[in-house]
């Protein structure tokens, strides 16, 4: 009789204990996995403004800093320089915006005014005005960004390399 009672008590205790543990664990896990559910560090703008269209000379790449703001959990950091890009305005006012990093090993590329070519100083990668590889080890042409022009402003999607 007494043994049965204790057996029963054990089962009930285990069950109640399980309910209690689950009730406590659920919100804790919910809070713990927050970074899976929500972006905590992110740029606040999808498209970043690089300046007015007329600031860019036709046919000559111009290096521009990409300035935007970043949310870091509760903080907002404004006016942060996120990096830089090469902007090329073409005759028809269309734009190519290239990453400054060489697709080979990520060195910063320069524009050779005399050669009219992009040059990577690390392993002598050479690209033409449109970012195509002319010589050297790079496996592909320069990375570029999606661009659009709104109210005469040049905007790029800095989150995605093409």
């Amino acid at each position: 009789m007494e043994n049965n009672r204790r057996k029963f008590l054990k089962i009930v205790s285990h069950s109640l204990g399980g309910v209690l543990a689950a009730g406590i664990a659920a919100p804790l896990v919910g809070l713990g996995i927050h970074p899976w559910l929500k972006e905590t560090v992110y740029g606040t703008e999808d498209f970043i403004n690089l300046g007015k269209l007329e600031d860019f000379p036709v046919g000559v790449p111009k290096k521009m800093n990409v300035t935007s703001s970043k949310m870091d959990a509760w903080n907002i950091f404004e006016g942060l320089v996120m990096g830089s890009v090469w902007v090329l305005r073409k005759e028809d006012d269309s734009l190519s915006v290239f990453s400054v990093n060489c697709p080979h090993l990520g060195c910063g590329i320069n524009w050779g005014e005399d050669e009219k070519q992009f040059l990577c100083p690390c392993h002598e990668g050479v690209f033409d005005l449109n970012g195509k590889v002319l010589s050297g080890p790079p496996p592909r042409g320069l990375y570029s960004y999606e661009t659009k022009i709104e109210n005469n402003n040049v905007l790029i999607n800095y989150k995605k390399l093409i």
Binding site: P27, L28, G30, L31, H34, L37, A73, W74, N75
Partner: peptide
């Protein structure tokens, strides 16, 4: 304050915990 604000208003269960 900012981090407690984040726990309280920006996470799913932070306010409860």
């Amino acid at each position: 304050w900012g981090s407690v604000y984040y726990i309280q208003h920006k996470t799913s269960f932070g306010w409860f915990v």
